[in-house]
Design a protein around this nucleic acid. Structure first.
Lengths: 258, 258
DNA sequence: AATCCTAACTTGTATAGACAACCAGACGGG
DNA sequence: CCCGTCTGGTTGTCTATACAAGTTAGGATT
């Protein structure tokens, strides 16, 4: 186990390298659910970093729900497999990779159109302003899972249609060609029924249960850059989430019944 | 702005007090969306704590999506409102209170029964072992929202039926009478269709879209103490979540499509 | 034998300081 | 005027250390 100072992205922080090493050991099954991670002290002496750096690595895995720490005992691998990550903005492919599935996409449509009211409001632009719409069928292990329609203001990413390589990530294209980096996303999840066209594409019956996701992504200045409406199969897709009862409750108001 | 060492829960960490103070200033509108927070240096000198402590306070607000930080510039209030907290274990009433609604419950059933296979497996007990089942209709602003069935091993909370006051929280009863404190919960969310009895209770049509929640709650030792199956109306209930894009991407493997 | 207590381990909080990376505005030379 | 450079301020990472607090095992005491 060695720390490299450099990778293709330039300098990589120690804590991040340690985080990756630990995750790799978990992913390979060397550390199984319930197993204790090396203690912060052991990591720090073994790798020659300070305990705070080792701690940062473990803490970042905690935030992802992959491990949990108990004061006085140690840090342990949590047995929960995340099928949907509720902490990070992840692309469909990243999400599937986390649960060990092979993701593919089929582009259903890619055009520049005037924004309809709902899209304009979400993106904070005028009605009829040009937006790019990218419609994709998302496929995991050859099974169609969902339909995603992404809307982006054309002004922010002119010529996206020409520069975008469908084999790469949309987020990567936005970052590389336009310097746009997503920071925060708000997501609304609703339960609905498959409409005719959705049912056909997803190979399910009309009226089958589906998830409807509506996601608005923002850059750090708070400006919305992407609005996504998705429909996912209710029979194949489910959301797994781990909730933590915080030591110090963030919300402390007078809530009495429960 | 002063730091108190003690509150009703005992000693409260500095960083948490600072976090609360900052959040209060945001909540009251003293710090508006887009405004810069005091710099870590300013917080540390003004309050007489180290910069790392001030940083911890700001970072915890970042994780909640309430503020964002930019290297070289500062930390800023993000302009987004949080409707539902997806990080903490919250009871129905707490959840409704957060979105400003009045919550009520009607007890549909409360009995001690032998555990069926699904319940036994989730709770890690033998089949046929006694479990308490509490079935409640959850009502928000006089509108029926969902049906919750909680299962608890009778062994862990003998006599719950007698001690439980339906007007108070189940979690509070478990904590007060049995010393049981929830620490972690794993939740699975699925999309489904309302069955006949559910539809009747929720006053919706059979076959309407619903959310199915399955939640297993654990105490810190990792033992399961509660298994909850819920069905919530798809037309009235929705999940709002905020996601954060991490600076260093967690997944760096060969993810090509996105 | 049962109980208490201590020691050694863990994570949690906090300090004081250092340098790097990044940003903006001021300043200067072309 | 334009364009680098400098400079001071910010967050990001990291070190070394210290003590608090929770857990566990084993030894001492009763």
């Amino acid at each position: 186990m060695e720390l490299a100072f450099i990778n293709r992205n330039g300098i990589v922080p120690f804590y991040y390298q340690i985080q990756q090493q630990l995750y790799e050991r978990i992913r390979l099954g060397e550390l199984k659910p319930g197993d204790a991670l090396p203690s912060e002290h052991e990591i720090s002496t073994r790798l020659g970093v300070s305990r705070m750096t080792a701690r940062l690595a473990v803490k970042s895995l905690c935030e992802l729900g992959i491990v949990y720490s108990k004061q006085g005992k140690g840090s342990f691998v949590s047995g929960l497999k995340l099928e949907k990550n509720f902490r990070q903005v992840l692309s469909f492919t990243e999400e599937m990779a986390l649960s060990g599935r092979q993701a593919r996409s089929r582009i259903l449509g890619f055009e520049t159109i005037p924004a309809e009211a709902e899209v304009a409001q979400a993106l904070g632009i005028k009605r009829q302003e040009s937006v790019v719409r990218l419609r994709r069928l998302r496929i995991a292990d050859s099974v169609p899972m969902g339909i995603e329609s992404s809307y982006l203001p054309d002004r922010l990413c002119p010529g996206l249609k020409d520069t975008f390589d469908p084999r790469t990530s949309l987020y990567k294209a936005l970052s590389d060609h336009y310097g746009i980096q997503m920071a925060i996303a708000d997501e609304v999840i609703e339960s609905g029924l498959a409409e005719a066209e959705e049912a056909r594409l997803l190979r399910i019956r009309r009226g089958s249960p589906v998830f409807s996701f509506t996601r608005t992504s923002y850059v750090q200045q708070g400006r919305a850059v992407e609005y996504v409406k998705s429909t996912y199969r209710g029979d194949r897709y489910r959301i797994v989430n781990r909730l933590v009862r915080l030591k110090h409750e963030f919300i402390e108001r007078d809530v009495k019944n429960g």
